[in-house]
Nucleic acid binder design. Structure first.
Length: 498
RNA sequence: GAGUCGCUAGCUCAUCCGGUAGAGCACUUGCCUUUUAAGCAAGGGGUACUGGGUUCGAGUCCCAGGCGACUCACCA
């Protein structure tokens, strides 16, 4: 790319800044220095230097670290700067008489944002800052663009989301969120592996979508000439594996739902779904409680997190309340025997759009979301849901009209969904047919009839508990993030114009 | 989807009632061998999101569009 030439003087703005940096890059090349070499021998990460300083200084150990230059302060024949690697930030000190005239001259072609490796020994400056005295350095990567302002960092949320790589360079708080995210996923994975679960993978491209109520993305396979759906859940595949005898399985499942984007929703998001043969939903309430207590214990000092100003405590046993009891507790009415008219009256008190109440079950669902959910700040299980809302859950063993289902709530957020899994193939077929009827009435989110899944159930699926946890939402709670975009590296955005 | 707010230098932000578009950081140049938010000094850098309109004159007022943020409504 040749942007220079006769009108070089007219190159301004970011192009001018890049041109200057390219000029320095060429300066390095003409001095025989490759600005993009292949490797560098790193002896220590910066946090190791900090923690083992005394021994290293005592032994005058020759050290090497690598990272990005975040600050430079030149003073003629000396230069101070800060180098940052994944573990921390360290001051370095370059002297002309230590590195030599030529190397010092070439060092002037290095600037903030470049990645370098340095070798030297530790000392403390007269202001007592731990510093690496540089004997020798290597340019590792020349950067052509300047970093954002060092004090305020990158503030513009749009830029932070679109150019996450820059956000991660300059905003430590952004890095922290993602370290927490992936540590949480590791802890969840280890918790399940420790209990004999097998981590599996199931299809993302599915000929029939199911396992949740949502509109899917559709794509097309050319060779087979069929439409395929990006999965909205992996539930029905994991339960096929239970039929196959795998007994305990889980998957970190990227799901895709073709719906709106807002603070709590991204078109692709991550669920963790797990299933265990010979257990039921009460076992899984215990497990979820223990899992989150374990995770909170590892991620926090005291098992407590602050989310939107509320302190959430994972140490104490969770509140467990039945769906209708929760409604009664908040609203003061028994919804079990309530007629449609009275329900509509209640719904109108909570500013619910009455047109959305297409069935008694839907009305209960909406009233619950509006009136009860926001009150469930401390970890709470709501259980024993109306059957009509749960086509994949098993009938309640003693209460007709209910299913053995629970949802964990934290910080006013629904963070998951679990049940004793319906494994009666005839009952499942009947439930699918109800869904199909709703579909034909125009409910695009109702389930499709999955004949292969029914065939699998006909071979026999052991009594099982199943659970889906919304990973993104849990990360939001553990990082006190207000938006799902803050816990996804690359949230979905409209394409940049131009 | 609705409402509110925002978009000015690479970044962070000013520009008061419509009157020549400014600062800090970054960058360039000079000086400087323990500095540190930024050593000291000087200098360069602008399609004010886009397109219309009003006006002698628009970053500023009006209209339309683009992108985003926040709040609300719905789905995890």
């Amino acid at each position: 790319m040749h942007t220079e030439g006769s009108d070089e003087l007219r190159v301004e703005g970011i192009e001018k800044i890049k041109a200057v940096r390219i000029e320095k890059l060429e300066g390095l090349r003409s001095a025989g220095i490759n600005p993009y070499p292949y490797r560098f021998e790193v002896s220590h990460k910066i946090d190791e230097l900090i923690t083992t300083e005394a021994a290293l200084t005592e032994a005058k150990t020759m050290l090497s670290i690598a990272g990005r230059i975040m600050a430079l302060r030149g003073h003629g024949a000396t230069t101070f700067g800060h180098l940052e690697d994944r573990t921390g930030r360290l001051q370095f000190y370059v002297r002309r008489d230590a590195v030599g005239d030529a190397a010092y001259r070439h060092f002037k072609l290095i600037e903030v944002g470049d990645i370098i490796g340095i070798r030297g020994t530790l000392f403390r400056t007269k202001t007592n800052e731990l510093t690496l005295r540089v004997d020798d350095y290597s340019v590792l990567t020349k950067a052509l663009r300047p970093l954002p302002e060092k004090w305020h960092g990158l503030q513009d949320k749009e830029l932070r989301y679109r150019q996450r790589y820059v956000d991660l360079i300059v905003n430590p708080s952004a890095r922290d969120v993602f370290y927490t995210r992936f540590r949480l996923m590791d802890l969840m994975r280890q918790f399940l592996l420790d209990r004999g679960y097998l981590e599996v993978e199931t299809p993302i491209l599915q000929p029939i979508y199911g396992g949740a109520s949502a509109r899917p993305f559709v794509t097309h396979h050319n060779a087979l000439d069929i439409d395929l759906y990006l999965r909205i859940a992996d539930e029905l595949y994991l339960k096929r594996l239970l039929v196959g005898g795998l007994e305990k399985v889980f998957e970190f499942c990227k799901d895709f739902r073709n719906e709106g984007i807002d603070r709590a929703h991204n078109p692709e998001f991550t669920m963790m779904e797990c299933y265990s043969a010979y257990e039921d939903y009460t076992d899984y309430m215990d497990m979820v409680e223990e899992m989150l207590r374990t995770i909170a214990g590892e991620l926090t000092e005291n098992g407590k997190v602050t989310f939107r100003g509320d302190e959430i405590d994972f140490n104490t046993p969770w509140t467990r309340i039945r769906f209708f009891d929760a409604l009664e507790q908040v609203i003061g009415l028994d919804f079990r025997q309530m007629g449609m008219e009275e329900m509509l009256d209640v719904a109108s008190r909570y500013q619910i759009d009455l047109d959305k109440i297409t069935s008694p079950a839907k009305g209960l669902d909406l009233i619950f979301s509006e009136a009860v959910e926001p009150t469930l700040v401390q970890p709470t299980f709501v259980y024993d849901y109306p059957k009509a809302l749960s086509p994949l859950a098993k009938d309640h063993r003693s209460e007709p009209g209910l299913v053995e289902r629970f949802e964990p709530f934290i910080g006013g957020f629904e963070v998951g969904n679990a049940f004793s899994e319906l494994n009666d193939p005839q009952e499942q077929r009947a439930r699918f047919e109800e869904q199909a009827a709703m579909r034909s009435l125009g409910d695009e989110e109702a389930h499709m009839i999955d004949e292969d899944y029914l065939r699998a159930l006909e071979y026999g699926m052991p009594p099982s508990a199943g659970l889906g946890l919304g990973v993104d939402r849990l990360v939001m709670i553990f990082t006190d993030s207000n938006s799902i975009r803050d816990v996804l590296f690359f949230p979905q955005m409209r394409p940049e114009s131009r």
